[in-house]
Each structure stands twice: as structure tokens, then as C-alpha cells.
Amino acid sequence: MSRTTQAGGYRERLLAGAVACLQEKGYARTTARDLVAASGTNLASIGYHFGGKDALLHEAIAGCFEAWTRRVEEAIFSPAPGTPRELLERAMVALVDVFEELRPQLVVCVEGYPAALRESVLRERMAAMYARAREAGVGMIRRACAEMGVEPPVQPEVLVSVLIAVSDGLLLQWLLDPASTPDARQVVDALAALTMFAA
């Protein structure tokens, strides 16, 4: 058992154990006994804190999504936004150039997709996670535009959805073929080049 899963109360240990199991075994192959072994807790604690194994796994997946969103916001606003392009570059660095560093957590996020196709509760939970990520992204865009004294170039909700789609798509490519996946600067250059065709 890792030091991470030994630290904290039962709830925190169960969540850490769930993340470890999702990374090692995946969603479908993780059992309640796996979760107990990874967290150093007991079967009753899963029901007490989460209501069941699936709810615990859902919470672990949600936690990984939310942690990534917080990292993006911290990267964008520290230091304060400069030009719109600098802001976009910071956002893409926090969304794309972190794949290697965050690989274990991002694998957990990806593990949620196939399970969500078959489980309506997880599907609704992940849809809600995307809704929160979009809401947070819209708030970031409005805050940045206000600080720069400019208007958003397009509807913020649409812009955030497109940036999430770019990030998610690149993540899937990177997991399969890291060497062929562009980095954040290349992504920003490509997005800028696309505007030539839309002008």
C-alpha cells in the first residue's frame, strides 16, 4: 500500500485507493476488495462514505477532472494575463503540455468514458463535470477579457467547448502516440493559422 493511501481519514484514503485502482486495473476490473486493499480500509467504509463501490469510483474520476480544471485556472492567472495570445498559450500549456506529468490522473479521466456509455449515473456525473468545467472556463475567459479590457472574440461558452475538445482529442492521441502529438505552442500556431481560412 502506498504512503498516499495510508494518509488521511478513511474517505481520503478510499479516494486515493480508487485512483490507484483505476490507474492499475481500470474501471470495469476494479472490485470492492481491490479498493479496500489499496486504501487499507474495510468494506463497510465504502458504503458508509460513498454508498457503494461505483459511487466511490465516480467520485475519484470527478476529482481528477476538477483538479485539472483548477490547475488550468492557476496557470492562466499567475502571473496576470498579458495579450490574448499569451493567455491562450498559457491555457494550452496547462491543458496539453501536462500530459506526461498528469498521466496517471488523466488515465483515470479517460477510463470513465467507456463506463459512462453503459452506466447512466456515471454518464450524468461526467456530463455535470463537463458542465462545471465549461462554467469555470467561461468565468476564466470573462475575467481575463475584463483584465485586458477587451471583448470575448466569440461566445465564451463555444470557445471553451472547442478548447476542451482540442485538449481531449490531443490527450487521446498522446496516450497512443506521444511523439506525434503537437505541444501547446504548435497547437496555438495551428489555431492561429486556421483563422486565415475563416477570414
Rank of each mutant, 00 (worst) to 15 (best):
M1Q: 09
Q6L: 09
E12Q: 14
R13G: 00
L14G: 03
L15C: 01
A16N: 09
G17Q: 03
G17Y: 02
V19D: 08
A20K: 03
K25P: 00
T30W: 12
T31F: 01
V36T: 12
A38D: 02
S39K: 03
L43I: 14
A44C: 07
A44Y: 07
G47D: 12
A55M: 10
A55F: 08
A55K: 11
L57N: 03
E59C: 08
E59F: 04
I61N: 02
A62H: 10
C64D: 10
C64E: 15
E66I: 03
T69K: 11
A75P: 00
F77K: 12
P81R: 12
G82F: 07
T83W: 02
E86L: 06
E86D: 14
L87H: 11
L95W: 05
V96A: 13
Q105R: 12
Q105C: 07
V110S: 09
P114E: 13
R125V: 03
R125Y: 00
R125H: 05
M129V: 06
M140A: 11
A144V: 10
A146H: 08
P153Q: 04
V154H: 11
Q155C: 07
E157Q: 13
L159F: 07
V160P: 02
S161D: 14
L163V: 03
I164D: 07
I164P: 00
V166M: 07
S167P: 06
Q173W: 07
W174L: 08
P182C: 10
A184N: 01
V187A: 12
L191I: 14
L191E: 12
A193I: 05
L194V: 07
T195Y: 14
T195E: 15
A199S: 15
